[in-house]
């Protein structure tokens, strides 16, 4: 897809098996405005109703924060956004490995080189990284790394959870988009290539008509820096295009959690998230 205007409806419903007396929440559901992606409209509604406080966090994501103190047994969050995307672009620049060893190059990207909880350092992975990096230029090695991840993991949901680390997913041999992204980050960072986690939505492949409301998903992919930031979708094994809507970037999933909250009261009995995408042009 080269250019698109997409409407995204992201509906989350939480049902509790008892009364919740109070809850505090933060949403990171707002598509970013970038060089190639424009947020045209956004509406966020929560039920029970609550005043919403918004701010931009450290990573540049827009956060909607709210708290509810009326006793409730269900919580619904509806975020509807309208985004125009021309597809992410980058400049191909050839940088040698020596550049990646220089402090003045590395330091600005320090956070995207360090291991995190979901993207730990791992010796076996480092070996694979050094094999790749010894055979090719940084940008080719990075592309190889993405390919390697696609071959090392099978897409299967239910085998991993939100706190599964890249290495655990790798050992298990399968995972969802989040695990593909984490494993890519782990491998890229082991080679000294700055890499960051991206969350958002992707317009499903297939023969969808304009104006048709199709079921979509939250999605995750990565961006890595080899002279410029390159966006790759390791789950699909291809570059990110205008069908991808970027919401947030961070070191790993925990920096971009779409709905983060705590509450006091009965446990969550069920949770239902639906994402619908409508292509308007």
């Amino acid at each position: 897809m080269t250019a698109s205007r997409l409407q995204i409806d992201h509906v989350s419903c939480y049902n509790y098996s008892g009364v919740v007396h109070s809850s505090y929440n933060e949403l990171r559901l707002t598509p970013l405005s970038t060089m190639w992606q424009q947020l045209l409209d956004l509406r966020v509604e929560v039920s029970p109703r609550a005043p919403i406080f918004t701010y931009i966090d450290y990573w540049g994501s827009q956060v909607h924060a709210f708290d509810i103190h009326a006793p409730h047994e269900a919580l619904t969050v509806i975020a509807r956004s309208l985004v125009e995307s021309s597809g992410q672009r980058w400049e191909e620049r050839e940088l040698g490995w020596d550049a990646f060893a220089r402090d003045d190059v590395k330091d600005p990207f320090a956070e995207f080189l360090e291991p995190t909880g979901c993207v730990p350092a791992d010796e076996r992975l480092s070996e694979i990284g050094s094999t790749l990096s010894s055979a090719a230029s940084p940008s080719d090695a990075a592309a190889e790394a993405i390919k390697w991840v696609g071959e090392s993991l099978t897409y299967r949901s239910g085998t991993t959870g939100v706190h599964t680390s890249a290495i655990e997913a790798w050992d298990g041999g399968s995972g969802v988009c989040q695990d593909f992204a984490h494993l890519s980050l782990a491998l890229l960072r082991s080679m000294g290539i700055p890499a960051r986690y991206c969350s958002g939505y992707v317009y499903p492949d297939g023969d969808n008509r304009l104006g048709e409301r199709v079921a979509g998903e939250s999605h995750a992919w990565v961006e890595y820096w080899v002279g410029d930031w390159i966006a790759m979708d390791p789950t699909a094994g291809r570059p990110v295009d205008a069908g991808h809507v970027l919401v947030a970037r961070g070191r790993d999933y925990s920096d971009v959690v779409p709905l983060k909250g705590i509450f006091h009261g009965g446990p969550t009995s069920s949770m239902d998230v639906e994402v619908f995408l409508t292509r308007l042009s």
Partner: peptide
């Protein structure tokens, strides 16, 4: 969290 229950793409 959402990814705990999200369906595969």
């Amino acid at each position: 969290a959402e990814f705990d229950v999200v369906q595969p793409i």
